[in-house]
Simulated assay, not measured.
Amino acid sequence: MRLTKTEKRTIENELVIIINQNPNGIDTRVLIDKVMSTVSKAISNANRHHVAGMLSWVWSNYNYTFLVRTPGYSVIAKK
């Protein structure tokens, strides 16, 4: 299912809040789990793929950096 622009902005805001709360970086798997637990009741049709897609958007637009980048997991942080 597709998300509305409002739902996408909600996920975006939650990603930014959680990344900024972890100045030493956060594992992207943990980040996605935290966002999903926060927004799952408000956005019932959201799934992990939606959050991962928004993570890509947030990474490029907010100028975050990957401290570790591997096929199994990555760690993202504020520059």
Rank of each mutant, 00 (worst) to 15 (best):
V30A: 08
S37P: 01
W57P: 08
A42M: 10
W57M: 05
T4C: 04
V16M: 09
G72K: 13
L15E: 08
A77G: 07
A42T: 12
A77Q: 10
I17H: 15
G72C: 00
K78T: 11
I32Q: 05
T4N: 12
L3E: 07
A52Y: 03
Y73E: 09
A52G: 07
Y64E: 06
I19F: 02
I11K: 06
W59D: 10
V16A: 06
L3P: 08
K34S: 03
V68Y: 00
T65M: 04
R29I: 07
S74E: 12
I18N: 14
G25N: 06
S37E: 12
V16S: 07
K8I: 07
M1D: 08
T38C: 01
D27Q: 06
K41Q: 10
S40N: 14
I19H: 08
N20Q: 09
M54F: 01
K41N: 15
A77W: 03
V58K: 05
H49F: 04
Y73C: 05
M36W: 04
E12R: 15
T70Q: 13
R69T: 09
I76R: 07
G25E: 05
M54A: 08
S60D: 14
D33Y: 05
S40W: 04
N63K: 10
L31N: 11
K79Q: 10
D27S: 07
T28A: 01
N24G: 05
T6R: 13
L31I: 12
L55F: 02
N47T: 02
I26S: 09
N47I: 00
D27G: 03
I11W: 01
A46E: 11
T70H: 06
T28D: 11
P23S: 06
S74H: 08
I19T: 15
L55M: 09
H49Q: 13
N22A: 04
L55D: 07
V30P: 03
K8H: 02
K78F: 04
T65L: 11
L15C: 10
N22W: 00
E14Q: 11
H50I: 10
T38K: 15
S60V: 09
L31F: 02
K78C: 03
E7I: 03
L3I: 07
A77K: 10
I17C: 07
E7G: 04
K78I: 02
K5L: 10
F66C: 01
V58N: 11
I19N: 11
A42E: 15
M36F: 10
E12T: 14
Y62W: 06
L31D: 13
F66D: 01
V75Q: 05
R48E: 13
N20Y: 06
H50D: 15
S56Y: 04
N13R: 14
R48K: 12
V58I: 12
M1E: 08
R48C: 04
